[in-house]
Amino acid sequence: MSEPIEVEVRPAKERDAKVIAEIQAAAAQAAFKAQFPGEPMPEFDSLKKSQAYWREAIEFADPQVLVAVADGEVVGFVGFDRSRDPKTPATMGEIWALYARPSHWDKGVGLALWDAARDGLIDEGCTKVTAWVPLGYERALRFFDMAGFKREMTSIKTVLVGLTRIEEIRFKRDLK
């Protein structure tokens, strides 16, 4: 890991929606390029559409959104809430999204966001948490492994990102 930086985690504000969308796009593009070197990027949602999604999420706390701030700049975010998976108990939480600027990878941003999301999920009465992670995104797979999540091998599913099919696996862990 690079030299850790000092990170403050706070609830997102509506004005953060634009930078959240930009961070998500930049991190997804960097992860895709690592997984599929030399292949053209699939079409992701437009920044405008993504920004509208995150603005609404922040406004209605669905999911709850926290941002990581370093040197006065938003450098990452996490969205979390109850699990969206069918037939899960009300005590099952989910990390809906966790992204950091590629320039801030390996500096403790993801860990700070995970710690804050875990506390928020516990406050909501959750006892377990899941996260869906693309199988080829080695950085994210390592992160969730190191954060104590276990891979549910029978959960693998294929999702479309633009015209590209990507396999995802569900990770799960206790919040205790």
Rank of each mutant, 00 (worst) to 15 (best):
E43S: 15
S46H: 03
K48P: 00
K49Y: 12
Y53T: 05
Y53D: 10
W54M: 01
W54E: 00
W54A: 00
E56W: 05
E56M: 04
A57I: 06
I58S: 05
F60S: 14
A61P: 03
D62G: 10
D62C: 09
P63H: 06
Q64H: 13
Q64P: 09
L66M: 12
A68H: 06
D71Y: 03
E73T: 04
V74S: 11
V75C: 02
G76L: 02
G79R: 00
G79L: 04
G79I: 01
F80T: 12
F80Y: 15
D81L: 14
S83V: 09
R84T: 10
D85K: 11
P86N: 06
T88S: 13
P89Q: 14
P89N: 15
A90R: 09
T91Q: 15
M92V: 09
G93C: 14
E94M: 15
I95A: 02
W96S: 02
A97P: 06
L98I: 11
Y99L: 00
P102S: 06
S103T: 13
H104Q: 13
H104K: 12
H104W: 14
W105K: 03
W105I: 10
K107N: 04
K107Y: 07
G108L: 02
G108Q: 11
A112P: 03
L113M: 03
G120E: 04
L121R: 08
I122L: 10
E124I: 14
C126F: 01
C126V: 01
T127E: 13
K128T: 11
T130C: 07
T130H: 01
A131N: 10
A131W: 10
W132L: 07
V133R: 04
P134V: 07
Y137P: 00
A140S: 13
L141V: 13
R142E: 13
F143K: 13
F144D: 08
D145Y: 11
A147V: 15
G148T: 02
K150Y: 15
K150S: 13
K150W: 15
T154I: 07
T154W: 12
S155A: 09
I156L: 02
I156C: 03
V159P: 06
L160Y: 06
L160F: 08
V161R: 07
V161D: 04
